[in-house]
Design a protein around this nucleic acid. Structure first.
Length: 862
RNA sequence: GCCUGGGUGGCGGAAUUGGUAGACGCGCCGGACUCAAAAUCCGGUGUUAGCGAUAACGUGCGGGUUCGAGUCCCGCCCCAGGUACCA
């Protein structure tokens, strides 16, 4: 065999790595460690898509690189295997989710191994494995002990027709995704985790993380900390007080009315008899609107007067109390003091209902808007007049506290985490109910095994599927011997993924979720790579659990993931779409607003660029050119298996890294895969020629200066690019090496071997094969990474572009030893024919000389 | 609306952070090999003008700073993702 045959060499090396356990994590702690983690996949029925290998290749390159740099590397993978699709499939077909899940895991594992990732397969974790979820339950008990898990009534999406609770994503326009049946909000007993208790720490500790700024910002917004004050407003002729939260207590003199959320508990108490009907009607309407609907209507504000008045504590004035759905029941206190002068929403409402508006901050003279929300001196505000916002706030809070009508207060957008699901395929809660009260299952009894049930739907009464396992549900309290009922809710999919990175560290440890000694060595995760769709929820929940475990002494770091990178989505191939209406082709702009147009898919040979648009060849008819998300319905899904069969795993890996920066969204191009495949073929021929016989085109001659320069340039570039995760330019450096080396008479071994090492993280199979054919008997996975020598990078001459008035007019070559000699270089520059031309009849007013970079002569006519 | 990215050849993308814009790959054009094709190899390829040396223009748009701007500053436009009555 002499031609490059990926299918042969790839299977051979994959087998070698598995059998020899090449990538087994070292057990000693004698070297620096590097923990590199992928977001583990949900093993879906459709297998791997091309998005998975993108992030996984990036981490694999780093893992292989770090091993060769002398690190102990922990690079594991596992399965986030609880989840809805397997359960839905079970409901439909009766197949136990365990069966489906096992089958899918086998497929995923094969696919990942087929791509040559250097995972330690002895550390696989599976969230559905009782040995794993034992510790998920254990962590839940910690939360429960600390009072961070509590029961509450919370509304769920209940679909009476399907007899089941639906996740938000299963509800479309108030109807079930499956079948289109109506969905209603119905309160149910739920488990809730008190993540809000950690809000401040989750916010503050973001600062020290090497995460994308956008992700940190999203988490900050999600937590939504705002500092302000709570103020009590006495209801006129009632004993009740209404407490409001405001970030602008300084505007209190401009509070001309109050608004309660329709759900506010005081609404019924304070509403006057003659307003009762209006208020009831409004409440009913608001109730019927879904959350989405209430959010959509941003323009027209609606509301009703309750008939009651409150006393503004700052000036003793009576102000009307309204209810309106622009005030949200679950934020702040569910009630606001409305200050239309300084708040756009309040201004709109005041205008609609003819309520008074008082400005309490002086807007600038040229201000033409309505509400003025920026800084300025206070007006119409008694003792605050003249103070700017910051000072006015301090002053009024002091006053409120002194008079006992308010205090400084902090509020968060973050809400407690609804932690239970009415599902089968999830972790059972380690909770029993004795005399109607929840009680922890003793630690020794963990895991609470997911029971078998006859069907996977909820019961007729709407209880979760686990309620069907009556023998399991009806138990006794081991402590008192009393009758007890097991919790029948299950945990959400997030639970297993909240701590899996810890289990990899000591997957078989049975003294706790993680072995303390190992944890000390391996944590934190040095690099975590995964999709940006997990920017908020998964990453926030995992951070929350980690902090709880930190408080319990289970982990030693405050944060789990030191550095985070999101890979960008891979789109389908670029598509050109033309539009046809009534048998005539029309331009894309024209077609935009019309519905009865036919889309025509064009190939790239049918279109050409005209200006900044594409048109149909030879016409003025513009077409759309766009890469779309891959989707089954569009038929543009690229299957990694097919790519591997045609071009090999090394080509797939290389292409996905070569497409562009890792973080960026980028369109797929099969031609591009062919390009990198050609590169691997060229590299192969460089070593082994293209004849039929087995030859090795390697010489044992010494490398000359030119060859060393080419090699060390590659070493430098590839090393720096891997360190900075700029894989696309690193690969380009490898290509440059091969292009250069192809022109050499002979390839010295001393140059060939370091090149193979450089190539190996990207294309490990071909590199192992080359290494082997170079006569090495062992894997190259632990060879030393080559270092570059600055000496070899120097060249004999330095090239200077010569500019006149900032425009390049000539290039000169200067011997390296005189390159920093300003007079010499300038002298030479001025002698150039094309430069003389520009100097002639002009005077040089300035000479710029940047050593090793550029010469610029600034001239003036005359 | 707000937040975060981003706009560079026919396409994906480079550019040492203020110093020759377009590395590398794709595509395209020409040539070699072949009866032919594929594969492979060699050469060319930002646009315009010119046989050419060369020149003008060129990094979303309009200004500015600088000897010099894709890179810095001011004002816009467009695209992608996220978020949304959060008081």
């Amino acid at each position: 065999m002499s031609n490059y045959k990926p299918s042969e060499i790839e299977t051979r090396w994959q087998k070698y790595w598995l059998e020899k356990k090449t990538f087994k994590t070292p057990e000693n702690h004698d070297k620096p460690k590097y923990y590199i983690l992928d977001m583990f996949p949900y093993p879906s029925g459709s297998g791997l898509h091309v998005g998975h290998p993108e992030g996984y290749t990036a981490t694999d390159i780093l893992a292989r690189y770090k091993r060769m740099k002398g690190y102990n590397v922990l690079h594991p993978i596992g399965w986030d295997a609880f989840g809805l699709p397997a359960e839905q499939y079970a409901v439909k077909t009766g197949t136990h989710p365990r069966i489906t899940t096992e089958k899918n895991i086998i497929r995923f594992r094969e696919q990942l191994q087929m791509l040559g990732f250097s995972y330690d397969w002895d550390r696989e974790v599976n969230t559905t494995d009782p040995d794993y979820y034992k510790w998920t339950q254990w962590i839940f008990l910690k939360l429960f002990e600390k009072g961070l898990a509590y029961e509450d009534e919370a509304p769920v999406n209940w679909c009476p027709e399907l007899g089941t609770v639906l996740a938000n994503e299963e509800v479309i326009d108030g109807k079930s995704e499956v079948g289109g049946y109506p969905v209603v909000r119905r309160p149910m007993r739920q488990w809730v985790l008190k993540i809000t208790a950690y809000a401040d720490r989750l916010l503050e500790d973001l600062d020290d993380l090497e995460w994308p700024e956008s992700t940190k910002e999203m988490q900050r917004n999600w937590i939504g900390k705002s500092i302000g004050a709570e103020i009590d407003f006495q209801v006129h002729e009632h004993d009740e007080k209404i407490c409001v939260f405001t970030t602008r207590p300084d505007t209190i003199f401009g509070a001309t009315y109050m608004v309660l959320a329709p759900e506010h508990h005081l609404v019924d108490v304070i509403t006057t008899p003659d307003q009762k009907k209006d208020v009831e009607d409004y409440k009913e309407k608001a109730e019927q609107k879904s959350d989405l609907e209430r959010q959509e209507i941003t323009k027209e504000k609606s509301g009703v007067f309750t008939g009651a008045y409150a006393i503004n504590p700052a000036n003793g004035k009576e102000i009307p109390i309204w209810i309106a759905d622009y005030v949200l029941a679950h934020y702040g206190t569910g009630a606001i003091m409305a200050v239309p002068g300084q708040d756009e929403r309040d201004w709109e409402f005041a205008e609609s209902f003819d309520l008074p508006i008082i400005r309490t901050v002086q807007p600038p003279e040229d201000f033409e808007g309505k509400a003025y929300t920026l800084d300025g001196p206070a007006i119409n505000s008694d003792f605050l007049n003249g103070l700017y916002i910051t000072d006015a706030k301090l002053r009024i809070i002091e006053w409120l506290e002194k008079n006992g009508v308010g205090k400084k207060s902090v509020n968060y957008k973050l809400r407690d985490w609804l932690f239970s699901r009415q599902r089968y395929w999830g972790e059972p809660f380690p909770i029993i109910h004795v005399d109607g009260k929840p009680k922890a299952v003793p630690e020794e009894e963990l895991p609470v095994i997911l029971p078998e049930v006859d069907h996977f739907q909820p019961t007729k009464t709407g209880e979760p599927p686990l309620a069907r396992a009556t023998e399991w549900v009806e138990t006794t309290d081991p402590e008192t011997g009393k009758k007890a009922l097991r919790e029948t809710n299950t945990m959400p999919q997030w639970a297993g993924s909240c701590w899996y990175y810890l289990r990899y560290i000591s997957p078989d440890y049975d003294g706790g979720p993680v072995d303390k000694g190992e944890e000390n060595y391996w944590m934190p995760v040095d690099l975590y790579v995964g999709g940006s769709e997990h920017s908020v929820l998964h990453l926030l929940y995992a951070r929350f659990w980690h902090k709880v475990l930190y408080d319990c002494g289970v982990v030693s770091t405050k944060e789990p993931f030191q550095k985070l990178v999101h890979q960008g989505m891979i789109l389908g191939e670029v598509e050109y779409t033309a539009y046809e209406k009534d048998g005539k082709m029309i331009s894309a702009e024209e077609a935009a607003g019309l519905d009865d147009v036919t889309r025509v898919r064009l190939s790239d040979s049918d279109v050409e660029k005209k200006g900044d648009r594409f048109v149909m060849k030879g016409t003025q008819i513009t077409v759309d050119s766009k890469a779309h998300k891959m989707s089954k319905s569009r038929g543009n899904v690229i299957n990694p298996d097919d790519v591997v069969v045609r071009y090999g795993a090394d080509s797939l890996r290389l292409y996905e890294m070569f497409m562009g920066p890792l973080e960026q969204v980028k369109p797929w191009s099969t031609k591009g895969v062919e390009g990198v495949n050609r590169f691997l073929n060229r590299a192969w021929r460089l070593f082994f020629g293209d004849g039929d016989e087995d030859v090795l085109n390697i010489s044992d001659t010494e490398a000359d200066a030119g060859q060393l320069k080419v090699l060390h340039e590659a070493i430098k570039k590839v090393t720096e690019d891997i360190e900075n995760m700029r894989f696309n330019t690193g690969i380009s450096a490898l290509m440059i090496f091969v292009n250069e080396a192809n022109q050499w008479e002979a390839l010295p071994r001393s140059v060939a071997e370091p090149f193979v090492i450089l190539l190996s993280p990207f294309a490990p199979h071909i590199a192992e094969e080359m290494w082997n054919r170079l006569g090495h008997k062992e894997t190259l996975a632990y060879e030393e990474w080559p270092a570059y020598n600055e000496e070899y990078l120097k060249s004999d001459t330095v090239e200077y572009p010569v500019q006149v008035n900032g425009k390049v007019r000539a290039n000169i070559e200067v011997p390296a030893e005189r390159a920093k000699d300003k007079d010499f270089v300038l002298g030479l520059a001025k002698q150039q024919k094309n430069i003389e031309k520009y100097l002639d009849g002009s005077t040089i007013v300035k000479e710029i000389f940047v050593p090793g970079r550029i010469v610029n002569l600034v001239v003036k006519p005359g």
